[in-house]
């Protein structure tokens, strides 16, 4: 579930931190920059593991701060494909079951990956598994807050870094006489998750923990 990632970065230490140990000051700056952030194609950063190498520090003209190139290792949440994880159901919607790990929320189990046959209860807004026994079908509800075991099948990274001025929208307006209402900007407001895990519970042993206890 967690991996170590080797990274290199140049860290700027402002002059008012010069009285501190360089290692401590750098560790704090790295945690300030990376903790609880998603790095593209790497995963969700948790905290600094260790500093492996410090290169020479430099002071540039016009700035009193020191700049140090640091080689370090960081603890990152990045489950490998097919890993089994246990989380909690955050809520259900038409798109599927949304699961949270507590520290990481963007996990989706799409309808086709649920235990089949599955059905969405519109009134209660929950997914249920129509489990069939000899005595007939049982409806197993997937309620909010229940613990759920799932397998990671895919990961989606979205580059959410700022893109700069939207030159494309002005370029696609060939007729200046027509109305220039900007409808595109409104839809662009929607917040996108930088890192999403896609899961499945379509295997024996997967799903709510209570289903498999006995």
């Amino acid at each position: 579930m967690f991996v170590l990632v080797e990274m290199v970065d140049t860290v700027r230490i402002p002059p008012w931190n010069f009285q501190r140990q360089l290692n401590d000051a750098i560790a704090e700056e790295l945690n300030k920059k990376l903790a609880n952030k998603v790095v593209y194609n790497v995963g969700l950063c948790i905290c600094l593991y260790d500093i492996t190498k410090l290169e020479d520090s430099y002071i540039f003209p016009g700035d009193g701060a020191s700049h140090t190139k640091v080689h370090f290792r960081y603890v990152v949440f990045h489950p490998f494909l097919d890993e089994i994880l246990v989380g909690k159901i955050k809520y259900c919607s038409q798109e599927g079951v949304h699961v949270t790990m507590g520290f990481f929320d963007d996990i989706l189990i799409p309808p086709e990956s649920l235990q089949q046959p599955a059905k969405f209860d519109e009134a209660e807004q929950v997914w249920l598994w129509e489990y069939e026994t000899d005595e007939g079908a049982h409806d197993l509800y997937m309620d909010q807050g229940e613990e759920i075991r799932f397998r990671v099948t895919d990961e989606v990274f979205v580059d959410t870094s700022p893109t700069g001025p939207a030159t494309a929208t002005t370029a696609t307006a060939p007729q200046p006489g027509q109305s220039t209402a900007p409808p595109a900007e409104v839809s662009g407001e929607k917040k996108e998750a930088p890192y999403t895990l896609i899961g499945t519970i379509c295997d024996p042993g997967l799903g709510l923990l209570s289903w498999w206890n006995n």
């Binding site: 579930m1 967690f2 991996v3 170590l4 990632v5 080797e6 990274m7 290199v8 970065d9 790095v39 194609n41 790497v42 948790i46 080689h71 290792r73 603890v75 990045h78 490998f80």
Partner: peptide
């Protein structure tokens, strides 16, 4: 920032 090795080692839950 540069990522040298995105999977240097796996950590167990206990280590974290």
């Amino acid at each position: 920032m540069e990522v040298k090795n995105a999977n240097a080692a796996m950590l167990s839950n206990y280590e974290v």
